[in-house]
């Protein structure tokens, strides 16, 4: 399948799949709480209804930020499914999240402000682990490209069990689920009201919802990458992770932000960094720059217009023996 086809499928199918996942989430949660729960399609009805509502704002420019949040979230997922550089995907994701946060700041209400600050703390909490996940995948597959990682022959989970568990932990934050529903809770909490989304309504709130659908599909696809060598297992595991998230959401009470930050960083150091440390010791030498031409940081021979300067042309192999 060409990158463009994958991209197109993502753009069309992700909101449908994301909406369905949200519907299942509500249904399963309801069953866990001995309730009947809404129909599976309820999230779509909600979004359609929101879309028709009047646009009510506190500050006139606040909704523009939300539009760009949606735009860059879709862009992030698009990059991922087109097989681009994983680090670039993370940076695009961060950019999207920052637009969201700035929109909440712009709204200038105390509750959205608290939500924005907490969202930032959460970003600070999960970002190291997310980056380490990309680095871990690079160390195993020698490429940052999603395309190459997905095409790698072995199951990444065997080399990266710690990274996987750490990634799961931060996924819980990313999904904004309990115990990390600090910045915008789905449940009524007095001190937070609706947090970061307090002042957004109508079409903007619908856009936030759609952005989350896109984002969730992208994140579950990242889980799939750990098992990409066996696609069937990958899909099963992605679904399992999603169910696990719902389970945790219903079992745990909310943590304070201090606890969220500290625990996430502790997990990152112990599981993520520990895994990478073992990996770098195991392989005997650090990952050498890949030889393939289209790899991210492939050495590019640059024509030296300055023969006088090029006094010490080192062979490329010197970069491999660097550990001492």
């Amino acid at each position: 399948m060409s990158p463009w086809t994958r991209l197109l499928i993502y753009l069309v199918a992700a909101p449908i799949l994301g909406g369905l996942l949200a519907g299942w989430d509500r249904r399963i949660t309801a069953r866990m709480q001995s309730r009947q729960g809404p129909p599976i399609l309820q999230p779509f009805y909600d979004v359609l209804k929101l879309w028709k509502k009047e646009n009510v704002v506190v500050r006139r420019s606040q909704n523009y930020y939300i539009f760009f949040f949606l735009l860059f979230t879709v862009f992030t997922g698009g990059l991922f499914f087109a097989g681009a550089d994983l680090l670039l995907v993370i940076f695009a994701l961060t950019l999207a999240a920052i637009f969201f946060v700035l929109g909440a700041y712009k709204a200038s209400s105390p509750y959205s402000f608290v939500g924005a600050e907490r969202e930032l703390i959460q970003m600070m909490a999960y970002e190291p682990m997310v980056l380490l996940t990309a680095i871990g995948m690079y160390m195993v597959t020698k490429s940052f490209h999603v395309h190459d990682i997905a095409g790698h022959g072995s199951l990444l989970i065997f080399a990266l069990p710690g990274v996987f568990l750490g990634f799961l932990y931060t996924l819980e934050i990313k999904f904004r689920k309990s115990p990390f529903d600090l910045s915008c809770s789905h449940h009524a909490h007095q001190e937070l009201v609706r947090g970061i989304t307090t002042e957004f309504s109508g079409r903007s709130l619908a856009m936030i919802e759609i952005a989350h659908w896109y984002e969730n599909v992208f994140l579950l696809a990242w889980v799939f990458l750990f098992f990409a060598a066996m696609p069937a297992l990958g899909i099963v595991m992605s679904v399992a992770v999603f169910l696990f998230m719902i389970f945790v959401d219903n079992v745990f009470a909310r943590l304070k932000w201090q606890a969220a930050l500290k625990s996430a960083w502790a997990v990152t150091v112990v599981l993520g960094f520990g895994n990478i440390l073992v990996l770098s010791l195991w392989s005997g030498k650090p990952a050498a720059p890949p030889a393939v031409v289209d790899a991210p940081s492939a050495p590019v021979m640059v024509e030296t217009t300055t023969p006088k300067l090029a006094a010490q042309p080192l062979p490329a192999t010197t970069t491999t023996d660097r550990r001492n």
Partner: peptide
């Protein structure tokens, strides 16, 4: 490249 004989650069696609 003058110092090391080779240089890094950002990939075209990126």
């Amino acid at each position: 490249a003058g110092v090391y004989g080779l240089s890094a650069s950002l990939e075209q696609g990126n």
